[in-house]
Design a protein around this nucleic acid. Structure first.
Lengths: 161, 161
DNA sequence: TATTGTTATACTCTATAACTATA
DNA sequence: TATAGTTATAGAGTATAACAATA
């Protein structure tokens, strides 16, 4: 919580980065969770909603509404799984692939704007340091903790009421 | 959104850091907003709720409940302002000062755990780089963007419903 | 009997706006 | 008439748990 402390700076800048990216994605009418799903479906096609929810740590019941929306916009398709009729087989559509490219462009612009204070060498160094910390902390690459919720705020009188 | 990209790493690690710190603070029955308020009152005593809400970008109506809670626990005191009876003059109590020290201890432990992958030189370098980026992005030191809300998700059909 | 996806419900959090007391 | 703080209300977002279909 102290100013100038790297842990606080990380939390502060991370929230800022997430906010900026969220705003840029809004131009495409997408949320970060939408983008995460589309990106995952490119490399892990045909997975079920259950598998998707586990990989991204999104609650299954929350996935339903998100996928309903993406399917209505024809970015994702729910195909039947012939082996097990309880499961869906999720696929990226042609439109989904195209919007994924636009997401990539938005992400690059976002990153450029975010790191404009640093030269190439410093960006490389920053990336290395962040990756070291992330690996040691056991973070799964490409999975944003914001997708999931924290394990409920236990202490009964923690909240203000 | 790409893996290994510094912008995504920042958002990912920042959310992780915030989550970890939130969990540690919960042991003291405090939220990050509580801690931010207590810290600010140490250096900016006697300010009004209005001023506090502006500095931390917390909505005034939200502040009421937070301060009610902190005052009930005798960590903060609302004193009358003799010059303008509409305003409160906010002060840290003795207990508030003491818990602030415990918050500092928690923050140091949190930071140590978070950055255990890095040696002293790398931590210094990381701090410098983050500070450069934060300054260029116009972030106010010590003010976490998570305290406030985003300017409402404009596009009507952005949300899933 | 267990599991996938869905729906219904309840809960938490927050902002909006109305209200009071002071200025 | 405007402002500080408060309260009441409503809205968004989410998890919990019950449900139907299938295994």
């Amino acid at each position: 919580m102290e100013r100038g402390q790297p842990a606080f700076l990380l939390a502060q800048l991370g929230a800022h980065a997430a906010n900026q990216f969220t705003e840029r994605l809004a131009v495409l009418q997408l949320t970060p969770a939408d983008a995460g799903i589309l990106r995952l479906l490119r490399v892990a096609a045909a997975i079920s909603q259950q598998e998707l929810s586990e990989k991204l740590r999104i609650h299954p019941s929350r996935l339903v509404a998100i996928l309903d929306n993406l399917e209505r916009r024809q970015l994702v398709e729910r195909k039947p799984n012939p082996n097990d009729r309880r499961l869906y087989s999720l696929h990226l559509t042609k439109d989904g692939g195209e919007i994924l490219e636009r997401i990539g462009k938005v992400a690059r612009e976002h990153q450029e704007a975010l790191l404009s204070a640093l030269n190439a060498a410093d960006r490389k160094k920053l990336t290395e340091l962040l990756q070291q910390v992330g690996d040691q902390q056991g973070l799964t690459r490409g999975v944003h903790p914001g997708y999931q919720r924290l394990g409920k705020t236990k202490p009964a009188d923690l909240k203000h009421s």
